[in-house]
Amino acid sequence: MHAITYETPKSLDEAVKLMAAHGEKARALSGGTDLLIQLRAGTRRPEYVVNIKNIPELTRISFSLQHGLKLGAAVPCIEIHENGDMRKYYPGLTEAAHLIGSLQIQSRASVGGNLCNGSPAADATPALIALGAQARVVGPKGERMVPVESFCLAPGRTVLQPGELLVEFHIPAPERRASDAYLRFIPRNEMDIAVVGVGAALTLDMSDDRVVAARIALGAVGPTPILAAEAAKSLIGKPLDAAAIDNAARLAIAASSPIDDMRGTAEFRRHVVGVLTRRTLAKAAERARE
């Protein structure tokens, strides 16, 4: 591990200035549950580490039924789980955040860090994509909104330019008869990393229970998290019966592009995408009907 300069800005302005001043040499530190490991292993070698946990915009959850959710990029996962609105209106995202590591890890790790790390296996990312989350990015040239499904470019690489900082997520207000779910396959029961992750969000018609809106996202089955748009589209206007779910599962499999690696074969992952798509849709629908 090499020498680093550690900065703790207290405001967004200050943080953006630091990030801009050091460009590629700087890396934002949220919970550090990925970054510290990468520093030790030498796989990332920033000269400046900028702690963003003291910046108000990055560390708050603000929710209203009218305006939806603003989730600070550095909010620890445990706070998401402990937030009643999050549990009630975004249970899928909440359960995804609650699956990341142990309680100790969740006390540090954040959904923003999970995304910026750029891992295709990040648990929170498919849940964010399913909810249609937008990432608010601030940098030296101003700010922009990036749909989460477009945020990751390759394993470990994102759209963030040198000097840019992910500030928060904007997530639409929950519709009535809408909900979400996230399920993953891990070889153990806890303390593990997704071999396949599937997030789904559904809105059902008030009267006839047909699908009004749907989004399905896949994790760990391609170089980036994947929005399975065709699979979701196939459900629109249909009752969520076994045939519709099976069809969506088939299309989700088609949207995936897994590889063989130490965590599982491509063949296994494709099969499990189907299994988890079916289970996730059923779970989201059950919640929407409650």
């Binding site: 070889p187 153990r188 029961n189 806890e190 303390m191 593990d192 990393i193 130490m262 965590r263």
Partner: peptide, 16 residues
Amino acid sequence: LRNFGLLDYRMPTCLD
């Protein structure tokens, strides 16, 4: 060796 850590060298935890 690809799995040189205890995340991917999977021993059972007490939850397993």
